[in-house]
Design a protein around this nucleic acid. Structure first.
Lengths: 216, 216
DNA sequence: CCGAATCCGCAGTGATACTG
DNA sequence: CAGTATCACTGCGGATTCGG
């Protein structure tokens, strides 16, 4: 399985050799949100051919970016996880995603939103300065979507699924239809078109902490 | 020329649709260093097929990332430049390149280094904190390579070619052979195996300003 | 059901040659 | 110098099949 090379001794070229193939960075993004099984990945990557996913996972495993593990406690089966160097890709993914977000425009027909993509946008929108020193937890709910964001002394834990323990504030965005994109979630929050349960004063904190300095 | 899509309303997916095709980000990297002509690009991207370069440039132009211009003063001809949104890709390129640099290992046989790639590594290595408030200029020379780095009150101008005006310090790295990779340049500087012309005290400043906090 | 492997048609790519 | 043109090849997309 000889991989195609760029012939340059350059960090960018090497990065593209390792994660530049089609679908590769999207797979890493999904795994950065949380460990996933093969079929979870298929579901979160609309239209990926199963043979391509299989090939990418092997390449990423060989590159030391992805690990294949037997799932721990309840559900057994195989899960794919990022290794340490895979996790170090997160800043690159977030930075590239921030740029892409400026090019998004309106959703095109058929384009979907997944919990993993919203998770990464939420991480990309995290404003370290605004969060400094804060401790609080939120749970965001919308159709097909539950996310948690926990701040511990300014350090974020942002991911899909409910907050561990009880969230200080549960924000429910009462929209219809499919999973809404992050921008529509934030729009609803800033207009107050949300249902709150818990410390209502933390809604404003949330929008400030999850709006990047340069805006998305 | 229908472009392949990922079917996700997500910044990362959109970014990959726009600059995820083979060679695209390397072309953007070369143009981020300085405007280049078609044949300059061919020369700086070892092994790129000319038809692929041609196709990519058209796609990038249509995406509003690259502009085709008639060269200004002396040499006439066509040059390709980044648009504003193309220039906004630079943080993403630098971040991805920093990750790739951690995966580089030793140069593989036949891998080359180009002035554009070294320029981008120099920009990626810039340490804003260490540079704060400084004003100074350097010129780095090595076989096949001349770079300038100008600091004005902490603001960097880093690119290929000699410094505008006279550099405060000219650092010549006396190596043989092809263009050396950035890491070898820095190694030589930190060991003092360089020739200096100008304010010799600025050598140490240079190595501090161009070593990122987490090291490359 | 999960986790793939296999087969096929086609589009994107690589290599080379050629042209305004 | 700045690209087209041609053609072989391979990776990708789509579907189906297969073993645990």
């Amino acid at each position: 399985m000889k991989r195609r090379e760029f012939g340059q001794y350059c960090g960018l070229a090497r990065a593209l050799e390792l994660v530049g193939e089609r679908w590769a960075l999207l797979i890493v993004r999904d795994l950065a949100a949380r460990p996933r099984r093969y079929t979870d990945l298929i579901e979160g990557l609309p239209g990926i051919p199963s043979n391509v996913l299989s090939t990418r996972l092997k390449e990423l495993e060989q590159a030391g970016i992805v690990e294949r593990q037997v799932a721990p406690a309840p559900q057994r089966g195989l899960v794919y996880t990022l290794t340490a160097s895979g996790r170090e890709l997160e800043p690159a993914i977030l930075t590239l995603g921030r740029w892409g977000a400026t090019q998004l425009g309106e959703p095109r027909p058929g384009e979907i939103v997944t919990p993993e993509s919203v998770t990464m946008v939420l991480r990309a929108s995290f404003n370290e300065t605004a969060a400094a020193g804060l401790t609080a937890s939120w749970e965001v709910r919308a159709p097909g979507l539950v996310l948690h964001a926990v701040l511990t002394d300014g350090k974020p834990d942002i991911g899909p699924g409910p907050a561990p323990g009880d969230a200080d504030l549960v924000i429910t965005v009462p929209l219809d239809g499919e999973i809404p994109a992050y921008r529509y979630l934030m729009q609803a929050m800033k207009c107050g078109l949300v249902e709150l349960a818990g410390r209502r004063d933390l809604l404003d904190t949330f929008t400030r902490v999850f709006t990047p300095p340069q805006a998305v």
